[in-house]
Design a protein around this nucleic acid. Sequence first.
RNA 1: GGUCGGUUUACCGAGUGGCUAGGUAGUGGUCUGCAAAACCAUUUACGGCGGUUCGAAUCCGCCACCGACCUCCA
Length: 489
Amino acid sequence: MQNNLALYNSLSRKKEPFKPLHPPFVGLYVCGPTVYSDAHLGHARPAITFDLLYRYLMHLGYRVRYVRNVTDVGHLENDADEGEDKIQKKARLEHLEPMEVVQKYLNNFLKNMEKLNTLHPSIEPRASGHIIEQQEFIKSIIEKGYAYEVNGSVYFDVLKYSQKYPYGKLSGRVLEELQATVRDLEGQDEKRNLFDFALWKKAAPEHLMRWPSPWSDGFPGWHLECSVMSTKYLGNIFDIHGGGMDLQFPHHECEIAQSTAALGKESVRYWIHNNMITINGQKMARSLGNYITLDQLFNGEHPLLQQKYSPMTVRFFILQAHYRSTIDFSNEALQAAEKGLQKLLKATATLKNLRPSSESTVDIKNLQAKCYEAMDDDLNSPVLLSNLFEGVKYINSVNDSAEKLTAGDIELLGNVFRTFVFDILGLTDEGINAGDEKLTEGLMKIIIDLRQEAKNRKEWSTSDKIREDLKKAGIILRDVKDGVEWERE
RNA sequence: GGUCGGUUUACCGAGUGGCUAGGUAGUGGUCUGCAAAACCAUUUACGGCGGUUCGAAUCCGCCACCGACCUCCA
């Protein structure tokens, strides 16, 4: 199987041709959310970025197993022994069972991901469902000599690992520097070095989320689940691991160390990281409290929102920037995205009614090639969109008889738009359901015919009143060259 | 403080040595009973200073500013 796709690999800091290990199969693992509050705009970024990659790989003919984990255990508030599990903290605040919290916010996340038209991953494994596997992984690391047990907790021995393997290669860290900058938090006496990290933590008596283990009643460390679940479902070596740039260190660095220590070789061939969404130039994050949830975006209920924005507007907004650039949130930018999306979708509808000519005056094959080039160049969705807008111009020009297309080229153009707009970019027309539409079409025809009769009699006040009243009802009429167009506002 | 990245026209956002990215907003025009849409034309650029080059937004150096990571995080 052939492709021209190049992806930016964080490991090499270069774009590399994408060659899967076992074509036509591709293994894709992406770090999912920690489910302890409603999904926010920041969560939409990796979901849409890797949805784009997933869709494109499938379009190229690959059979992709897409695994995205759900973190429902284990992430501590801080690195101290007193650290309280994020999920447990929320559970106490809301008087819920920890797993009830997990379910609630997982539902919220998945509902919003569906609204954004991201495809479901092939597997969405949960950390709490893989405790035994994680313990087995720890045992293997201990056997290889890269972990040590202290008072029922198990830590990864970074110093020892770094003597054989290059710890820090992904994030560009140097151990000596880490030594100097690592924070000296309380309760770290058990570690041999400050940069060691927990594989298993003994649970304090009041800790609710706990499982029995050879070392203690406790819970797995922060980074372990991804090493375990990625290799369990994708094999010891797999193609792509994705996630947010903020996870590069320490999370992904620790993942590499764990997997390499346990398996004797590196698991991941291509590391892909999406950039952050910022607000007023600063990263949007739950811990900073400057986030807007997806629910709020969709219903407009947030002090910073001038209006509500539909899921497709949000999706288009994100796709308009390259995934490795930051995107700054603003009402202006979202409103521009909303209009741009409407223009694109309107043209796809117009496309269906184009009249063919005996010759073509624009080059559709070339347009198609440019669309593939954009996607092949590290998923350059903004350039793809700019090419598609060139197609929009063609469509409208042909509709206005300023340009011409043969029937074959119209079909090809339709193909290009269906493929890239709907299949690959995953945009949808957030219209209305089909049954209502049929009735509305009939009613609109009656109204438009009556108005035309008035116009024929030059009763402008009547025809204008019909148009104005329809506008109040949310329908826009337009008199065009050969008839009347209408659409919903 | 260390490591890494960024600074593009009114706003968003591509672009790595010479050729109009694109979207949104603005202006003028075509069309039109009017309006709208569409199309055509068009204005405001590459943080600062220096260097390399026939030629730099694009390469190099210095400076300024902003951000990410070094705690949990998408």
